[in-house]
Design a binder for these strands. Structure first.
Lengths: 145, 145
DNA sequence: CAATATAGTTGACATAGTCAATTATTGACC
DNA sequence: GGTCAATAATTGACTATGTCAACTATATTG
């Protein structure tokens, strides 16, 4: 019963997991007429954030964020606003429609008998999230080097 | 010190992890002139596979796979071939160049001081992969319902 | 004040993803 | 055996995502 995986096999398992998880998350948005990146962005906008933060999370060109936020604005889900402390930055916050829709997404996502983490026990979930947070922190830190 | 996460927060942590991991994996391919999906596909082609298997892993339209494999063929990295048992299916296998390049990708991916799993101990990695395999299996199974 | 860096936008372009229609083959079933 | 539905892959049209270079506006440094 000792099925020891090589590191290569571990990465292949990780890749399959990445593909599946992403699909699972964005399909909730698709059901609600959101594109994949609009779905992800909406989920990340529980609180207002500057565009730059999203850029760092998505690790993409800033112009991407412009397009995604344009889409959310057109759908009346979010809006840009300025802050005085630095007038270069645009903050984004959800409008009432956006908050409602976000609540729907979160509800479906965390609905026990559906989706990814639903199959894990409370203990396993905690364990799992600790591990991904460790990886996320370490990988981000390394990036700055 | 008790920083108990809600399920919602867990999913947000998962999303950040997904974005970061994908970036980290495909940037290795980008350094080697591959597009993101070509990178992922090459990694998954250790052994020949039918296009349909990739379609199921990526959970996308079949026409996507056609395009990705076309790209790999143009770069002389992979080739389609037929099997007798079912003449509708096209198998894909790596050509010598593709195998070489795949080895390079795997080498960089598993290079200890780089990338995602490098920050975990052997025990943590095992633990982590078991959890993602559990999630992957359960989520796939549920899908068929 | 000048030089440089940062936040965001725009437009051009390549890649990725969806959809509907099509071809070839297989499997089912009477 | 012959018809019919299902499956594997392709094509073409279209939208979304991602990258790049050029630009505007504001901040920071010195």
């Amino acid at each position: 019963m000792n099925t020891q995986l090589t590191l290569e096999q571990s990465y292949l398992a990780l890749i399959e997991f990445l593909m599946l998880s992403k699909q699972r998350i964005i399909e909730i948005g698709t059901n609600n007429h959101l594109s994949s990146m609009q779905t992800i962005t909406l989920l990340l906008l529980k609180n207002p954030r500057p565009m730059g933060t999203l850029r760092r999370i998505f690790n993409c060109d800033a112009s991407n964020i412009t397009g995604i936020v344009d889409g959310l604005e057109q759908k009346n889900l979010a809006t840009r606003f300025d802050i005085n402390s630095d007038r270069r930055v645009k903050m984004i916050r959800l409008l009432p429609n956006g908050k409602k829709l976000r609540n729907i997404l979160v509800h479906e996502l965390t609905n026990d008998h559906h989706y990814l983490l639903g199959c894990l026990s409370e203990y396993e979930t905690k364990n799992f999230i600790e591990l991904i947070q460790k990886i996320t922190a370490a990988t981000k830190a390394q990036k700055l080097t």
